[in-house]
């Protein structure tokens, strides 16, 4: 089946199996390896991507459901040379150890900051609900998102 959608701003037409998960299409067909296969039950948050700006679990979506939609993964937000302020803030806060949960955390945080540039710690906590981290704990992640929000508000982080 032919699937047309936009991935990180680029219109794509992909050949996919009708029963393929969005997770598998993003990783294996589109090459977005930042999208992680964790629990495959929608609980862990590692496979989170933005679908038209909303953070959803790509393991709980068939690729056919997002035909025509716009998908954003971490590859679309920044690179090691030009990181997104959220990426910089997570590294600087020491919020990243193994990194497996971090792409999903970044995307849910991005969705929050797009909607609410000046969130409280409680807002961040709610936005990161359902992102399981087994390394650093959550406090540094929350601090990092608040720090990135301040950077973005001050306009110091480049336009994203």
């Amino acid at each position: 089946m032919k699937l047309e959608l936009t991935i990180n701003g680029v219109p794509r037409a992909l050949d996919v199996a009708p029963d393929a998960l969005l997770l598998d299409v993003l990783r294996d067909v589109a090459g977005c390896k930042s999208v992680k296969r964790g629990c495959e039950a929608g609980d862990c948050g590692a496979c989170t991507v933005l679908v038209d700006g909303r953070p959803l679990a790509s393991c709980m979506l068939l690729a056919g459901q997002v035909a025509g939609r716009s998908i954003t993964t971490v590859e679309g937000l920044g690179t090691p040379e030009h990181p997104h302020p959220l990426m910089t803030a997570l590294v600087e806060a020491g919020a990243v150890q193994c990194g497996f949960c971090i792409p999903g955390v970044i995307l849910s945080a991005k969705a929050l900051l797009d909607e609410n540039p000046n969130p409280t710690a409680a807002d961040v906590r709610e936005a990161l609900d359902g992102h399981l981290c087994r390394c650093t704990g959550y406090v540094k992640q929350i601090e990092a998102v608040l720090a990135a929000a301040a950077v973005l508000r001050a306009g110091k982080g480049g336009a994203r």
Binding site: G42, G45, T48, R54, P55, L56, A57, E126, D129, G130
Partner: peptide, 9 residues
């Protein structure tokens, strides 16, 4: 119900 992410779906 569930988590906020699943409640969006």
């Amino acid at each position: 119900a569930a988590s906020r992410r699943l409640r969006r779906q």
